[in-house]
């Protein structure tokens, strides 16, 4: 873990300050870099949901992240947290690196961007996650058909919080691990221990909420970082 509690509190306090701002410009407080460990956000070469990647970029402290296309990634050494935003297909060479990261104790977040995919596209997505990381996901669900009474995903780990859903959900299927977020009675996010590492799968993109400065979404992300 390469973030102190003081840093975490600083970031989340900053998150609270953007309430009501339509176009937040996130500025992380200036803190001394204590370790070489980094956070990295990766987007796909064919980023199907660029606003999601932009959301992570907007809220993570700039000195700590590296944002790169997948193809340029190095072995990801010294990363405590790797975020694969807006994932549609997971190339095998990237999956292999992620597996190595997990074996080194990294926390890896995989955010699905296949909610709006075609039937064929989703099948490719599902296969890619299963073969790459052993993640099993169920078919997309339109959370808004019929219209919902409350538009929120309830996260239960690492903190209890509420973030808006993103209409289409790709739920995690039955598999080992802990469900850490729900939309009503539908599972949204899963946490798995993989060796010394942690694999977190999110079925309803969080990035768009980060991009609009949702303080709860930011707080959740930083809480994950704190636990990494």
């Amino acid at each position: 873990m390469d973030i102190t509690r003081r840093e975490f509190l600083g970031y989340t306090a900053g998150a609270m300050s953007v309430v009501g701002a339509p176009l937040p410009h996130w500025t992380a407080p200036s803190v001394a870099e204590r370790r070489l460990k980094k956070w990295r956000v990766f987007c796909s070469d064919q980023d199907v949901l660029p606003e999601s990647s932009a959301g992570y970029r907007a809220v993570l402290p700039q000195r700590r992240w590296r944002f790169e296309p997948w193809e340029q990634s190095d072995p990801l050494s010294h990363c405590s947290l790797v975020i694969m935003s807006s994932v549609f297909l997971l190339p095998e060479k990237i999956a292999e690196r992620l597996r190595m990261c997990l074996q080194r104790g990294t926390t890896v977040i995989i955010e699905s961007a296949a909610g709006f995919a075609s039937h064929l596209g989703f099948r490719k997505h599902r296969r890619s996650l299963r073969e790459g990381l052993g993640l099993r996901v169920a078919a997309p669900v339109n959370l808004w058909s019929p219209p919902r009474a409350t538009p929120y995903v309830d996260y239960t780990w690492p903190i209890r919080t509420r973030v808006r859903d993103f209409t289409r959900l790709v739920p995690p299927a039955n598999q080992p691990g802990q469900i850490i977020a729900w939309a009503g009675d539908l599972p949204v996010a899963l946490r798995q221990r993989v060796g010394p590492g942690t694999l977190i799968y999110i079925g309803s993109p969080l990035g768009p909420a980060l991009l609009i400065g949702d303080p709860e979404a930011i707080r959740w992300l930083y809480a994950v970082a704190l636990s990494a």
């Binding site: 339509p22 176009l23 606003e51 808004w144 219209p147 919902r148 538009p151 808006r164 209409t167 768009p208 991009l211 609009i212 400065g213 949702d214």
Partner: peptide
């Protein structure tokens, strides 16, 4: 109800 104001603005 589904797509909130801040998202609409940004997009």
């Amino acid at each position: 109800e589904e797509v909130p104001y801040n998202e609409v603005y940004q997009r």
